[in-house]
């Protein structure tokens, strides 16, 4: 239940990150606030500047993922940039996979209200469209990769 107690705080803390960045995401960091920025509501979400890397449970694949634009917003549709490689030393790209992303809120007993879909871009790169994390709090992120009909899952989590 630790997540349950910390969920509202997590929302606030991630929001504070945005406010510290000028109220409209990391792209505005350091900008001089102007009249338009003063009048805009702050944007809730989590800045994820660098790709996060996780290995599938079976140890076969490295999955890196990052929100397009480096920001995972609360309750706005967004996209993910995913790369998939084998766990060999050469990090051999895997380009023939299906990538299915499933995010859940264990504290709330539900997940996303969308089912994102992915598109292979070649060279082990994938674009996942249709992401929507409609609430702040703790989200698990399951990156399911299906290669030659066999599924593997890489697990991650973020606090929005």
């Amino acid at each position: 239940m630790a997540h349950l107690r910390s969920a509202p705080l997590a929302l606030m803390l991630s929001t504070a990150v945005v406010v510290a960045c000028g109220g409209s995401g990391s792209d505005d960091a350091g900008a001089t606030p102007g009249p338009q920025q003063v009048e805009a509501p702050a944007r809730a979400g989590l800045a994820i500047g660098a790709p996060r890397e996780v290995v599938t449970r079976d140890g076969l694949y490295r999955v890196t993922w990052v929100p397009s634009g480096g920001f995972a917003p609360v309750n706005e549709q967004f996209e993910l940039d995913v790369t998939l490689a084998r766990t060999d030393d050469a990090r051999t790209p895997v380009s023939n996979a299906s990538v299915v992303v499933d995010c859940q809120m264990p504290d709330h007993g539900h997940g996303m209200l969308r089912e994102p879909r992915s598109e292979a871009l070649g060279d082990g790169r994938y674009k996942v469209r249709g992401m929507l994390l409609h609430m702040g709090g703790h989200w698990t992120v399951a990156l399911n990769v299906i290669v030659d009909g066999i599924a593997s899952t890489a697990d991650d989590a973020i606090d929005l």
């Binding site: 803390l13 929001t15 504070a16 406010v19 805009a40």
Partner: peptide, 15 residues
Amino acid sequence: TTAEVGAVLTCSPVP
């Protein structure tokens, strides 16, 4: 707290 104020700022103004 600063974090609470940050959360409040996401709720106004209505654009």
